[in-house]
Computed example of a mutant assay.
Amino acid sequence: MNKLQLHGFNNLTKSLSFNIYDICYAPAQQQQAYIEYIDEAYNADRLTQILKDVADIIGAQILNIAHQDYDPQGASVTMLISEGDVTPPPNMNSQTPGPLRDTVLAHLDKSHITVHTYPESHPDNGISTFRADIDVSTCGRISPLKALNYLIHSFESDVVTMDYRVRGFTRDITGRKHYIDHNITSIQNYIAQDTQEDYQMIDVNVYQENIFHTKMMLKETELENYLFEKESNLSEQQKAEIEKKLRKEVTEIFYGHNYRRKKIKLADPLP
């Protein structure tokens, strides 16, 4: 493909919003221990390392890092980045999954990466949900979509929502405006095949506005993976009730609606 000759620099803004939800069953007597576990597993130091890896993948130089663990729970990290020193490879903008960590890919103009976490629990039914929001915003030639494959592998996720948007325009040497500089039909094209096979996926795209949205819900799950205390002595009736609560929580998050018990159409039963 012939390179586009620009008048000045590429000032397109490309923003990826990546949100994960991890659901767990932790009744009242376990909830404090669950929150403490989440705060330790996803503290500011670990989140900072994840963002450092993202910066490495997209070839960014880190200018500044601000991070904070919150009381009683949650953490945030904000990272300012600038362009790196590596020439972008020919397949930089191809619709393929990015690397998991080791390859530096491209230049970045000044931009940022942020992450915020939100552990929370239902007041009385034992369902706890951990949410992590990551935003990667870049200016110039590189798309943050190349970091998506690594981000998905960095968290255990029951539901994932992703939004990608290209804003602004860049002008070529003839004066013509270009509102996007790479082909994209779906965020799914940047997700590894083995991951796609594990999730039910839905797209909502507005091509004329360069807005792309993908949601993912884990297909097959085992109750044991949702119990905070794995060796819980539960009866078959208790297990069935917990499975119903978990299915309701996952389905409501995926579709973005609260459902009445009698009308809810739940996801496939847990095996």
Rank of each mutant, 00 (worst) to 15 (best):
I187S: 04
L108T: 15
E249L: 00
K215C: 05
T114H: 02
A44P: 01
K3C: 10
P99I: 06
D198W: 08
E156N: 12
R171I: 14
E197S: 05
D39R: 04
S232Y: 00
I23D: 06
N210V: 05
L105C: 02
V86F: 11
F212Q: 02
I50W: 01
N258D: 11
T96Q: 10
N43W: 01
Y25T: 05
L227Q: 01
V250S: 08
D39H: 08
T117D: 05
N149C: 00
L145N: 04
R176M: 09
G256M: 08
D124P: 00
C139T: 15
I180F: 03
Y190A: 02
A240S: 11
Y70F: 15
Q196R: 07
K239C: 05
T114Y: 03
S232L: 09
E243H: 00
I81T: 14
H112V: 11
E222M: 14
T251L: 07
K52P: 01
S143H: 07
V160Y: 12
T174F: 01
T221E: 15
Q68T: 13
T87F: 09
A132R: 03
G168F: 06
R171F: 00
T129H: 04
T13V: 15
Y37L: 07
D172T: 07
I152H: 11
E231C: 10
D85R: 09
Y255F: 15
N258H: 12
D109T: 07
I242V: 08
I202N: 03
T195D: 05
S111C: 10
E40R: 11
